[in-house]
Design a protein around this nucleic acid. Structure first.
Lengths: 209, 209, 209, 209
DNA sequence: CATGAATGAGTCTTCATTCAT
DNA sequence: AATGAATGAAGACTCATTCAT
């Protein structure tokens, strides 16, 4: 499914508002006004508010496929490097698509939007499988410990990043970074997060000190 | 502020529904029907839907005060034991009050309910301060490393637990625990989470292998 | 199901408007305005526009039960008298409840309002059964012919009355009765219709000249 | 006014849908989809939905003119034969153009579509005039009774046929004809109706037994 | 003290129609 | 000559809240 310019514009506006106010807290009127289009256009282009939500997922999920898979299969990288790359990949994705990931969390939180939950679950399962294979590879090579609880490990990755994203303004304040530019702060946050999570994973996965 | 039986009943129903369907996804009519009370009762007792939300926080936040503070001041415990206790305390709280913590995440996610966000921020600040003191104490005693990023560390605690709570059914399925009783699964999950996060904190805080 | 005064008022307004403009040609706003009530009252009292339509049937159909049945069982009347009474009964009902009977025709015309069609069909079946028994009784007594096509006979009764009701203004004009009072015209029409249909039925049912 | 192929196609689709769902129950979008044409075509070809309705009448009413008039003037036929022919003519027309006649009834039922009501009234008046002349001719020749209520007689014709058409599936079921083919059933129904109404008219018009 | 009745503002969606191309 | 895109108005319905009792 391809989206034209106007559709993308609507989707991005909706994404921002859904992230900010929640699905039920956002009216189609709000979206239409912010996007500078007629209310009827939303039904016209997407059929319904629900379908618009699905379109957001189609646009965002579609783009994140493929990249990770190919890198994982790269035989020239060590399992440790691959894990680190995966961590950076995830941090980057979340920080760059914050609106979308806030919606993602919000969807998992409630028992509404069942068709969307399915999509979110698929992503989760795919991620678990990729990581699972990667861990096994490292275990075979003797660089990773046995008995890794993959889900909890992934929860630490996803949870830490989500929580940091959600409360990043608090982080900024706590660390006296209010006068730093948005961009510089984002860069700093990414670096800090990357180091933090990589050291966690090192502790989980390897026997090294 | 004290709540009578009927008010508590309404609060608990609202808490469950807000957690399940979100604040805007739940109507006062839904709450009234589920709680078996008249619709007008909610405005009558709480003034508004918004105020009912605040009442939920009042009830839940009020109860979690004090306990941690006193334990922290206990001089007979080592900093490591205190941190571990804090972790267990948090896990228990979240797992026992899942509805409330889902609302908590949901509130932080959106920019609505500003008065509630304030309450949530207060809790966060208080927690950071407590942990901050605890860390300094450990650093003084030489058992904790220097240069600890407290916020990221707390984000790992809170994020991992939240993420695990939110996707616990997936954890259950992935680990073939669908036939285990709810209670047994909950106990197992708590133990696994506790071990997992404690080992993470050990890696973050100490120089031990 | 009993209806309170306000409900009856809404039902009667809706009945008139549905008869005049059709179900889809009448908006709930129209009904609310004509009835002098708030729009939300319709959903409040009946649940939906569709359910309001059902309420009309409940009110009108409920009242027409019983009367005919008891008279039919009267052993002191001859079959011919019973048939004549049935004809008059039907004419009176239709002329007195013209709005309702126009809705009735309208419902049978389209394939919408399936739940209402069921009710209309039930009435039709009940009527056919009553008449069927009555005819058999007359045939046993030798006053009615054999091989009566009951349905076509009923269609003539129902169809003639409906058609006359629908085009009564044309009848009035054609017969130069525009200056007659509404009441007098109605009385005249009823008498004419009664004589007309009774003579038709006599021709269908009996061997008399 | 002539219609091109595409216009006829739209008219016929609209006719079917208006008959099935009513004028207000049918959207131009429905018509466009069923007819496989662009939505804008309806406004483009007919100006509006209302005008499309008028086009239906133009197409159907136009075709039924002339035939009856010439036959009526035929001096070689007896008044009785002419009446019988008229009855058959009407039955055939209605059964063959059921969609159109359902719309016809529907239009008379409501006070909407005033321009269409005019057309329907014209037809009615013309019919009454034709029959009126015919009756007078028969009365002059002494084969018809005096004091015939022409309108009621016509109402019996039109009403019986309409009612039968509208509830023909019920007739089918009642007479155990569900397994008869559509065509055979239609033929049977026409014959039965013809006999039924002719005998009614005979009773109304003549002094014969 | 508690509530059934009521409401104005708001929800999402569909409508017939128009317009630029 | 024909149409895809677009829209203002209206559709039915639900909302949180109020008020008289």
């Amino acid at each position: 499914m391809e989206f034209n310019d106007k559709q993308v514009q609507i989707i991005e506006t909706a994404e921002r508002l859904f992230a900010d106010r929640g699905f039920d807290g956002t009216s189609v009127r709000d979206i239409a006004e912010e996007a500078g289009i007629n209310i009827a256009m939303i039904s016209y282009y997407f059929g319904s508010k629900e379908k618009l939500m699905e379109a957001i997922f189609e646009l965002r999920v579609g783009s994140l496929q493929g990249r990770v898979e190919t890198l994982i299969k790269d035989t020239s990288m060590s399992p440790v490097d691959k894990v680190n790359m995966l961590i950076d990949e995830h941090i980057d994705r979340v920080l760059q698509k914050q609106f979308f990931y806030r919606i993602m969390v919000s969807v998992q939180l409630t028992n509404k939007n069942p068709s969307i939950i399915k999509v979110a679950n698929k992503i989760k399962i795919r991620n678990a499988e990729i990581v699972s294979e990667l861990i096994k590879e490292g275990q075979k090579k003797g660089v990773f410990k046995k008995n890794i609880d993959i889900i909890l490990m992934l929860n630490t990755l996803v949870g830490t990043v989500s929580q940091t994203m959600m409360s990043k303004e608090y982080y900024r304040e706590f660390n006296n970074l209010l006068e730093t530019s948005d961009e510089a702060f984002q860069t700093l946050l990414r670096r800090k997060l990357s180091i933090h999570i990589k050291s966690l994973f090192k502790a989980i996965l390897t026997n090294d000190k």
